[in-house]
Design a protein around this nucleic acid. Structure first.
Lengths: 224, 224
DNA sequence: TAATTATTTAAGACTTATTTAAGATTTGAT
DNA sequence: ATCAAATCTTAAATAAGTCTTAAATAATTA
């Protein structure tokens, strides 16, 4: 299965170069050009993060922390700094590896694959809760009003995205990007159908609640 | 608990220096002075291996392979070789990280603790129990509904992985990583076939129970 | 009200899983 | 080292589940 790598790098040229390199080697890529954008974009479909240390805005330490908090995947730091003590700090804060620029493509690829290979420990349990819905990221299970709900892969991803962003409206294009990995044309009905099915399954468990709100012309969000 | 690190390094002075450094930092150490000795000494109480690449006797590749086979713990390779292609080979053979000599103590310690951090939760329990299945890790035996079940190596590993994570869904990629030590493409049927055989054998022992549940598009898990 | 956007249903396309069997590979005993 | 037995992988046919599309209906906005 193709893994998606999030590239957080402010230099447009390097970012683009990395995209091409990784795509040529069988990965999907998502680009962000600042730490804050990276944190925003980071979600459940990302398997690994390449983080450039010298970013404008927040410090690298803060960024790693927030990325890990949102979804704990391996972070490989790219840095021009050779300072050892810096490396130690990054490790202790949760960076899983680093490469110093300029780096060899082969070395970077090797480090990525080593990290992905090791990321199979299934010890990180993530549970999202909204009203009486409990979504368990680890065993792909959902309960609503105490009853277990059987969701398909896309339905699950849809609900997960909403529950990860409880106060935000998820636009259709964001949903297509995240759940389907591609941007659908506006006239596509697929998302609507899935949303309908998801709502129906939730309603069966709890007929008295409406969980998901339609934001006309924009997308969907969870109700207050 | 104090972790034990196996140091495989033929230079007496470096070996000794590493022992002191690691002991000062709260680790127990075991020293070996050749690859073959390392393999001999390596056992269940070792949490991590520091391996010098330039050893007399077997090649580093063979040694890593045999060490991992005996007891799969992180291997950090120490090497004076800067050659990138060599690094790539080592990664693909299962080395988890490397340091180039001469290395800074702080860097080595950081890499060790990063590697150990990833590996802490693999507590090896002797006997796993789920419903009426009893799996014994020590003698590789399984009984189900009182009857003994003859499982092949992969079937055993498969069942063990599920029983070690009774509440979780094991994704196909995790299963391939754990049971097969490599990531198979999605269209590979091997896992499906093994799962089918495992289910069949369990069903023969207890026709009334369904133990393993398919999570469509994701993987497998034990039933509630 | 007209135009646009969303919901629902159902059918067929498509994807993923299961099973069986055959050939390849590995293991273990001689 | 060789052979036999067991196991693993691959392939193909079948089965099960999911996704997309289309069309009819409903809701919202301008």
């Amino acid at each position: 299965m193709q893994k998606t790598i999030l590239i957080i790098e402010d230099d447009n040229e390097i970012n683009n170069m990395l995209c091409i390199l990784l795509q040529q080697n069988g990965y999907k890529t998502v680009s962000a050009f600042s730490g804050t954008e990276g944190i925003l974009v980071h979600g459940g479909n990302i398997s690994l993060i390449l983080l450039d240390l010298m970013l404008p805005g927040k410090s690298g330490e803060e960024i790693i922390c927030e990325l890990k908090e949102k979804h704990n995947v391996p972070v490989i730091v790219m840095s021009a700094i050779h300072d050892i003590s810096k490396k130690v700090n990054l490790f202790s804060l949760g960076a899983d590896d680093y490469v110093t620029k300029p780096f060899h493509n082969d070395e970077l690829l090797a480090r990525i694959s080593a990290r992905l290979r090791k990321n199979t420990d299934i010890s990180v349990s993530e549970t999202l809760i909204y009203k009486d819905i409990i979504l368990n990221n680890t065993d792909y299970s959902v309960t609503c009003n105490g009853k277990s709900v059987e969701l398909s892969k896309h339905e699950f991803a849809l609900l997960k995205l909403l529950m990860e962003n409880p106060k935000r409206t998820c636009t259709k294009s964001i949903i297509y990007d995240t759940v389907w990995d591609y941007e659908n044309s506006a006239d596509d009905n697929t998302l609507n159908v899935h949303m309908s099915k998801l709502r129906k399954k939730l309603k069966e468990c709890n007929p008295d609640e409406d969980y998901i709100e339609t934001v006309w012309g924009i997308g969907y969000r969870l109700k207050k």
